[in-house]
Design a protein around this nucleic acid. Structure first.
Lengths: 214, 214, 214, 214
DNA sequence: TATGAATGAGAATTCATTCAT
DNA sequence: CATGAATGAATTCTCATTCAT
């Protein structure tokens, strides 16, 4: 199969090829794919995966990192364009943030697995790297919020963001049902649980931000 | 070993014995125990488990149901004693709710596994039963809130509750770290992630309710 | 496949079936067979093996134990019929012992693997059991020798036996060649290594015993 | 990294560097080191190993050859100084030989692996080379013995040596226990197996030689 | 109804060896 | 000659579930 990747660029490309394959398979199956499948899907051999990742968990974290980076990038541009009045900011942030989250359809399913996976096999170093990325993004985006929203005192930007994320992850887990269950929810007795994630998220975030900014 | 359980009372007791054993083992190990262990710990045999539960997932859901019932009971008494002014209600609810959540140490870890487990094996019937319990509790508690908080129009009590729960689950997952990782967070660069769940939860809930009631 | 083995007799038979299968496969391939193969060859399933042995190593030790027991049984009858004069005893023991060893064609290859295997995975308990069997056999046979050979003071029977075994194992390893190598040894330069194990063993043991008894 | 080794001296040096690295690693870990580690430890690259050895087994045999050569050298000087009387010769040989064996702490562990390794992968040529070395050493040392011990007729020097070696290897395997097992042997029931290799070896060799020389 | 013996799917990882550069 | 990227074979053990007794 693939020719040798001798220089750093080729290596980075190859690493990315594995990640893309993993991402693709995960999207299709909603399950962490086996290493062998990732390799086949990337057109390389099983053993080669281990030249680029020390363990299966490391692949998982890299996937998650990708999505978080994308989320932080999206936040950056959303925050840059925030209106200055509290209500306007809350409304617009909620709308755009919800859109951004929906544009990253793997982020929440992956993040939902994180607790289980991270407790298992992951060596400290990649774990630290992952958390450092989160911390960095959070710090930076937190500061950005504080610049735009003078109502928030120092440090409270990051806190608001953390709460926003918690709400997002929790709502997704509470409202994401497998298809067969979805149908059951039409029952009047269960109707109260039959809510669309996107709608609920937008209104919850709006409320949270409104509360925080006033 | 156990005599045959012929009447319904005996059956219910036996079912409960398995659940108690499972709960106990889960609390000790923070891991879903193997069916064989549950059986041994309940003083019965492995095969017998399957006369009371169709699958391991069904045990899991029953466990979760227990904890949710306890949470709803706690909510009941918290809501019954809620002050009528918005701020007072928010402050008191946040404090008491946080306490109640901490008193159910298995609820959040179990709930965090729910998405993964439910997507897998669970037959529709126990799933429906579980969801019906949730819906019932949510409806009832939602109404109770609406009685105490006239600011909330019809149906918004349940919504607020759902958001509260989402915040709880999401924060727990974001802030629960394995011990070794916990130490890493002392690093100044990661300090921003080093937050206590209980503190964060209380303040986030307070803010959410304040926003909802004003 | 096989019906359930509910009572102790059936269970013992089943355990033996696995051991026989393992023995058979080892003899064919001169390599420790994979667990899956043992199971298939015994007409049962892979998982079933683990109801009877805690690990692959435990199978190995059981095999070895079988052969050592057989060797000790053979020793028993050889020693019972030993002439009383030193030379006669040495000569007869050497001849019969060599015959007994040749009648256990797996003993030495298996024993040659023992050091490697035992250092690896074996839990203490089966290890202890194995060693206890060896110690018991050695003690008993040692006493028997001392009864027949008054030249040997207390404890020296076991020592002589241990030396005899060491000589056996060492000679086998030094003189057992894979077939292709065997041909090379016809070269005059290598002729000195081209010895038959059985001949060398018999004469070495005779010499050792002669030395010990006089 | 290493410059190209163009002439024979450089090549020999490089080969030796690999062997020294392998030897060093084996001594540290009591396990045949991975090829990659040998390469790194020798300051060269993995692929380079295969320019000097056709397979991992070939490295192993070369290691063993080193140790056997050292043993033969030691024998040479031990035999040169042998007393002429049978008892004196036996006593002194046993003492010095035991010392020599203990001075080569890798010889016996390596030799114990030999049967397993040699049966596997080794091409004929290095195998022949190895055996030729053994045969040569054995022949020469055998003759030396015969010179010093007129009791031994032609060819019996080598035979005695082979028996001595077999006793050594067998005793080592029978008496070398992993540390955890060692403790078990304190049990009175197992005490009979709790013997020091060096003591046993010296007395067994003394007896063997005494028997051979009288 | 209770038991527990039997089942078998399922997957990560290492490492000797090859060969393109 | 040296390198190191790629390869892929090979195997153990756990554990939810079934079903004969």
């Amino acid at each position: 199969m693939g020719r040798n990747a001798m220089n750093d660029t080729d290596k980075a490309l190859r690493r990315r090829a594995f990640l893309d394959a993993a991402h693709r398979l995960y999207r299709e199956r909603r399950e962490l794919p086996a290493v062998a499948e990732i390799a086949v899907s990337a057109g390389l051999a099983k053993g080669t995966v281990y030249r680029y990742f020390r363990s299966k968990e490391e692949i998982f974290v890299a996937l998650l990192e990708d999505d978080f980076e994308a989320l932080f990038r999206a936040l950056e541009s959303i925050l840059a364009a925030l209106p200055t009045d509290a209500t306007g900011a809350a409304v617009q942030f909620a709308r755009r943030y919800t859109r951004a989250v929906l544009d990253l359809p793997d982020l929440l399913p992956l993040a939902s697995l994180a607790n289980g996976v991270l407790e298992q096999n992951l060596p400290l170093e990649p774990m630290r790297h992952f958390k450092a990325g989160l911390a960095g993004g959070l710090t930076q985006a937190g500061k950005r919020i504080e610049q735009h929203c003078p109502q928030l005192s120092r440090g409270h930007g990051a806190t608001l963001l953390l709460q926003t994320y918690a709400l997002t992850l929790g709502l997704w887990q509470a409202l994401d049902y497998p298809p067969q269950l979805r149908e059951l929810l039409r029952d009047p007795q269960l109707r109260i649980l039959d809510r669309r994630f996107s709608t609920e998220l937008e209104s919850a975030v709006r409320r949270l931000w409104q509360g925080a900014l006033t």
